[in-house]
Amino acid sequence: MNAADGGGLVHVYGVVRYPADLRVDEAGLGPVREISHGDLAALCSDVESEPLGLRGELKAHADVLAQVCQQAAVIPMTFGTVLVDDDAVRRELLDRYAHHLNGELDRLATVLQFNLRLVPDEEALLRDVLAESADLRTLSRAVQGLPQGQGQAQRLRLGEAMANGFRDLAHRLGDAAVGALSTETVDLRVEEAGGPEGVTRAALLVQRSDTTSFLDAAGALAERLSGRLACRLVGPLPPFAFVAAPDAALASGVAG
């Protein structure tokens, strides 16, 4: 292998149980290989030098892990985890964190992550907001009847109420939608709920064996929400959002 002993660096995608019978066709940051130690293996590519962080590199990291997670449980490393050589991967990752990695591999052995993103249709939700409030309908009619450039205060009052109503409704719908899927998940994390544009994002942890029924449920939900919220589902992914941080004492005990 080329850079393995020539001072090249090693980028780590994630850690799997060893031996693992994996097929990785994704390009990655270079050819993907395993560095094993005991019953753990790190999936790695040699990289020339820092810095790392081009878009293609970020995507390569994600693509390799997405492919691997369909074949085996994998603990994804954060992007940019680079060690000096193979030996450092064994010593400073696989050996030092062996206990934590084994625990996480056990805990997350049978799950996959899906990322749900719900984007509201502004017009549809504004219509709903008006339908819910007689006061706002009245105000809206009043503002519509005003000549151009007049009634700025009323305009602002209407706009503020509608903006708040939009956000509130987007939030309610997002909550209800994520809640509706929660029977199909083992864990979930709402990462954004009714954000500035009413977007809701959640990471959902699903049993591998339940993937089909989860996707059915997500499809049915998307159909129900159509017209109001557009549903986007990315996955299956490794459990990026659910990996526990290692013990702080362990992590900070750098200098041996």
């Binding site: 850690v15 820092e50 603990i75 680079v82 060690l83 450092a88 990752l93 941080a245």
Partner: peptide, 8 residues
């Protein structure tokens, strides 16, 4: 993803 205190 997992953050370790890597050398680099």
């Amino acid at each position: 993803g997992l953050v370790i205190d890597a050398y680099v």
